[in-house]
Amino acid sequence: MRDGIAIARLGIPAVALVTEKFWPQGDFVANSLGMPDAPRVRLPHPVAGTGEANLERIADAIAPAIIEAFVH
């Protein structure tokens, strides 16, 4: 979340990917950094370490949401 906001502040469009277990922390960081509506997309948890096939499934599933977040 913090990285996404830092990138956005550089003027580069950014969408943060936040897993569901870390969603409240994403809200906290976005609020504390003064960008509560910073675009973010919810991922299942865990992602890391779940294997390449699962990563591809997740990527396929969330790609439309990422594109949607960039467009709006």
């Binding site: 870390f22 409240p24 922390q25 906290f28 960081v29 504390s32």
Partner: peptide, 10 residues
């Protein structure tokens, strides 16, 4: 600092 478990202190 706002460090609270499960919310900002992970």
């Amino acid at each position: 600092g706002g460090g609270r478990p499960g919310e900002s202190d992970m």
